[in-house]
Design a protein around this nucleic acid. Structure first.
Ligand SMILES: [Mn+2]
Ligand SMILES: [Mn+2]
Ligand SMILES: [Mn+2]
Ligand SMILES: [Mn+2]
Lengths: 220, 220
DNA sequence: AATATTTTTTAGATTTGTCTAAAAATAAAT
DNA sequence: ATTTATTTTTAGACAAATCTAAAAAATATT
């Protein structure tokens, strides 16, 4: 048995571990990610170790072991399938589903999640463009590139975002930038890294660096 | 804020309170319903009282107050909408959804539940024939009657069940008895209260007292 | 009314997850 | 190589929800 809280810690370690590419995850990083004190993290790490979900030595940082990684990937699968359901079926905006999925991901039932997967048509990506692991935990990697790195004249299809917070997503929606939309680069301004682009054939707009550095496209 | 555990106690009080028609609910009854010790119930009753969800005096039993009742009805709404979703959309059997709904009902979001309601087409009854409260907490009463009380020659449509346990529901399914099916009484045997019936125009079968005493029909 | 039974509450512990404050270890700066 | 700063761990406490065993109150029985 693994509690919802333990699952959240596992997920946090997994997420940080990917961001910092490789190596040991620190106590403070986890504390920040799960929004708690470093002392609480240490307590939890001890427990997760006895449950054989992590590799952990005092002061040396932590790393998920294969069992822990499997758990994290399953959790990611659940989270993203629920997000897909909320957006595709219930009509929520992509900026509104994270917190709900954060709760729903802890519902314990493999049958439920697999039926949900089928019901949704076994989607490969969630509403934010993130890959959804299949039953075996395998997920498709997208071939992606930041808008920032498109040259003038080039264009791409939006396939993902680097920032996932509500405000950023909402901001993107206001510019009609969403997964699947096309972006063509008209002009780049080195001064402040702003870019003039055309979204889905609509009229030209200016996007700032925050956007171009955090939106992934697949070059056409 | 009200925790999932507190919600389960509130629901238990509500359910018992309806079964025993009126009056004060006892500590032991609740303990049985939520599967815990009477001592734990007493502790929780004290807490629920400070949260102003119940009317409670030492040794005098407990009763939901208006706020508590509202909570219980909302919970019932959530539970039954999730059950409907699981059966109608995901293809679960009516005997498989209770425990899942028991978890899902605690997801905290009014918007979610209202969108789910709309998505399902605002159903009035759940897969077990139980009424689903609307946003205001109002629910349709069904006009019902036990199969037991049908006379020879009479028939009715199955509209509900009195027992909700997995095994009973599964048993009914084996006889093809489900919500919406028609039942015609061919012959009644006083000796053991068994009844010979025709289900949905299929070939005659014998049903025992356990079934006839726990299946509700609407007389045709 | 007195006794026995059942129901309910208290007392005292335990587990899970959290906190603050202080100590210890590690890393960075001088 | 010391000193300083940062990170991490311990110590000790607390709230939520639970338990068992014992006491108290309410019911039922004789
Ligand atoms: Mn979560
Ligand atoms: Mn997502
Ligand atoms: Mn529940
Ligand atoms: Mn039901």
């Amino acid at each position: 048995m693994i509690s919802a809280t333990e699952e959240d810690y596992i997920k946090a370690i997994f997420n940080i571990s990917r961001k910092i590419k490789n190596a040991m995850v620190g106590t403070n990083q986890i504390a920040k990610e799960v929004n708690t004190s470093p002392a609480s993290v240490t307590d939890m790490l001890k427990k997760l170790k006895t449950k054989d979900l992590i590799q952990y030595e005092k002061y040396k940082g932590v790393k998920l072991n294969p069992t822990g990684t499997k758990r994290a990937v399953l959790l990611l699968r659940r989270h993203r399938l629920w997000e897909s359901f909320l957006v595709e079926k219930l009509g929520f905006g992509w900026d509104e589903v994270h917190d709900l999925a954060e709760q729903l991901e802890h519902i314990e039932s493999d049958e439920l999640i697999n039926k949900l997967d089928d019901y949704l048509g076994n989607p490969k990506f969630d509403p934010h463009g993130d890959p959804i692991p299949d039953v075996q935990g395998i997920f498709t990697l997208r071939n992606q590139q930041l808008v920032q790195h498109l040259s003038v004249g080039e264009s791409g299809i939006v396939v993902g975002v680097k920032k996932h917070d509500k405000d950023f997503l909402h901001h993107l929606s206001q510019f009609k930038i969403e997964i699947g939309k096309s972006i063509s680069v008209l002009e780049k301004f080195a001064y402040d890294n702003s870019i003039s682009v055309k979204i889905d054939g609509q009229k030209d707009i200016m996007i700032g660096a925050i956007i171009s550095e955090n939106v992934f496209v697949k070059k056409l």
